[in-house]
Design a binder for these strands. Structure first.
Lengths: 125, 125
DNA sequence: CGGAATCCCCACGGATACTG
DNA sequence: CAGTATCCGTGGGGATTCCG
C-alpha cells in the first residue's frame, strides 16, 4: 500500500525539521569564521590576553577579534577580566563553564577534520 | 620555577594549534549557512528531488541550493542521479556514505542546539 | 596594551526572469 | 521540473588610523 510509504515519509519530514531547527539554533550562536576557534583557544589556554589571543588565531584582525569577543561575552561563552590596578591595563579573557558544554561538539568536529584531511591526502595521489 | 609554567604554556599552544587546524579543515568543507542543513535533510529523507529539497529547507533560494549541491557533490557528500528516461526529467539527490561520517558531528551539534534553546528560554524569564 | 572609529570593497546571496 | 542568467543590495570583514 502506498499509504505506508506516505506515512513514513511524513514522519521523516517531522524528525527532519526538528533536527534542522536544533542545528540551526546551534549554528546561530557558534557559526562564523572565528567563533569556534576563539572558544577553542580560550579553553586550551585558560586565561589569555588580547594580543596573544590574536597571535594564536592566524589571520584574524583586531577589529574582528574585538567584535567576536563582545558577541561571545554576550552569549555567555567568554568572561572578560580587567586588571585596572596596573598600567598599562591588563585585560584577560577566560572561557566560561557554559562554553565547556561545547566540548563534545568541538571534539567531534576536530576528529572529523583530522580523518577528513587524511582522506583528502589519499585522494590526491 | 617559571620554567615549568613556560613549558606548559608552550605545550598548550601546540595542542591548541593542532585542534585549531583540525577544526578549520572541517569548517572549510561544511561551514556556511546551508551545507549542513542540506546534508541533514538528505540523510533523513533518503533520495529526494530538487524542489522538495528546497521546500524542506525554509529560506533557501533555487540558485543557492543549486550552487551548494554542486559544491557538496564535488566534495563527495552528495550523489546526483538523473532519470533521463522520463519527461520531464527527474533528478534525485542522495547522500553518500562519506556524508554519513558526519553523523557524530551532526548529532552533537543538534543535541547542543536543543539544550541551548532550553537554556535561552529559562534566561528569558 | 587593548581596543574604537572610519573607510571601503567585494562576494554572498536574494529577487526575478528565462530555458530545456 | 530542474535548474541558469542577470541584476543588485548589504554587511562581513580587511587596512589603517587614532585614543586612553
Amino acid at each position: 500500500m502506498e499509504n505506508q510509504d506516505q506515512i513514513c515519509k511524513n514522519a521523516c519530514k517531522v524528525t527532519c525539521s526538528e533536527n534542522l531547527a536544533a542545528v540551526e539554533d546551534a549554528l546561530y550562536v557558534i557559526s562564523g569564521k572565528w567563533k569556534l576557534k576563539i572558544i577553542i583557544v580560550l579553553q586550551e589556554m585558560g586565561n589569555i590576553r588580547f594580543n596573544e589571543l590574536q597571535r594564536l588565531i592566524p589571520g584574524i584582525s583586531a577589529r574582528v577579534l574585538s567584535n567576536e569577543l563582545k558577541d561571545l561575552e554576550l552569549n555567555g561563552f567568554v568572561k572578560r577580566v580587567v586588571h585596572a590596578e596596573q598600567t598599562p591595563v591588563v585585560v584577560e579573557y577566560i572561557s566560561t563553564d557554559y562554553s565547556r558544554t561545547l566540548k563534545s561538539v568541538i571534539i567531534s568536529l576536530s576528529e572529523w577534520g583530522k580523518t577528513h584531511k587524511r582522506n583528502i591526502r589519499e585522494d590526491a595521489f
